[in-house]
Design a protein around this nucleic acid. Structure first.
Lengths: 208, 208
DNA sequence: AAGAAAACCTAATGCCAGTAGGGAAGTCAA
DNA sequence: TTGACTTCCCTACTGGCATTAGGTTTTCTT
């Protein structure tokens, strides 16, 4: 049963390839990923990579999935605390999301933009991001129940507006100051205000 | 003085190349632009393109400039009307901007994202976009003077928040429904609400 | 130690961006 | 009209890319 020795080695190689791909994309742009360059850095000839991924798109897909999973992991601890003070938890969770995006600009671009011609994530890679949207909706719902938001904030339109708002902050940060630190990011710093703005817009009517 | 006959022909060719490039990018993605494919469609061999543009990046640069100029043209008639009712004019101008972005997704991606590895607009191509930002600021300033916004709305932070907000709407629309019509765009439809949200956040204090 | 499976290789195909250098055609001055 | 000059477009080429085909070495199991 030491068949999984091989399997472990294999998974290590897969991860090394993905890490290297991120490195290359950080230097040459997301759409500038080159199988040949990855191979060079991993210390292997280009065709050998095809033992691990059937195409360059498959690497993008695996990284998209990693991005979705990591950003879900970032939010998880917050979603567990929603019972407390939903608004405060949402603000904190959002700050954490933005911080993650800035620390992982390559993955964030893959999630928030469409930087690679002809790349569309497979449903399997995409699926966790649907769950992510549900997490967001239930967070807003919790704020509604706590009397911190009007009911419409958690309907389709409200959720869309929220995502536009925060993806705008991330998008502007990535486009204009791609390599800033979180605290100094001219746009990232606006995260708290952005969420406040949303809460004020959807403030519950007095006396209900 | 019929030297400009040649010059006119030349400019026509330049424009034809740019139009074709947009066409190719619309089909194969912004980063998927191929000189060879453009040449094929224009009816010429690839090296001939280098008579008109010294490199592929020069085409991106020219298109970036075109994008900035066109979106400035869209806004111009509104900025002339700022004296009336600034808020209404800002809303209308913003709707027009979003409509332009959806009608010109390729140029919009060039302006709002960073889709091409190693492409950074030259200062000359970028410069009009600085002016654009000033137009926005003075529009917000006008709303401040009309008592429709608090003074902070027109400071650096306020302007940044505004741009994040609307670029978020455009960004989400481009990423998720790239080929929708304006009216049906799930995110584009939020433009009015987004601007309202901004105005409510920066509502002037009562009695001042 | 033998044999199977996995990992890696070389060689090749058909793309691409960009360069070098040459020939045809338009333009201008006389 | 002729000759010189310029512009335009071409073929040929270089070096890079993703990917496929098919063979060789390494590794693990029995």
């Amino acid at each position: 049963m030491r068949e999984d020795r091989r399997l472990r080695r294999r998974n290590e190689t897969v991860q090394e390839i993905l890490d290297t791909a991120i490195e290359v994309m950080a230097e040459d742009g997301v759409a500038g990923l080159s199988m040949a360059e990855v191979a060079r850095r991993v210390g292997v000839r280009p065709p050998s990579l095809y033992q691990y991924f059937p195409s360059k798109m498959a690497i993008y897909d695996a990284l998209f999935e990693r991005g979705v999973r990591e950003s879900a992991d970032v939010l998880e601890p917050y979603s567990a605390r929603l019972a407390e003070d939903p608004r405060a938890v949402i603000v904190a969770g959002q700050q954490a999301s933005v911080a993650w995006a800035m620390a992982n600009p390559v993955l964030a671009q893959l999630l928030y933009w469409r930087p690679v011609p002809n790349f569309e994530p497979t449903p399997q890679a995409y699926e966790p991001s649907v769950r992510l949207l549900e997490v967001l909706r239930s967070a807003l719902q919790a704020a509604v129940h706590a009397g911190q938001l009007a009911a419409e904030a958690a309907d389709d339109e409200g959720v869309a507006l929220y995502t536009a708002l925060v993806s705008g902050v991330i998008s502007q940060q990535l486009a204009n100051e791609p390599s800033a630190q979180v605290e100094e990011g001219r746009f990232a710093r606006l995260t708290g205000m952005a969420v406040d703005m949303f809460f004020r817009y959807y403030a519950p009517r007095e006396g209900e």
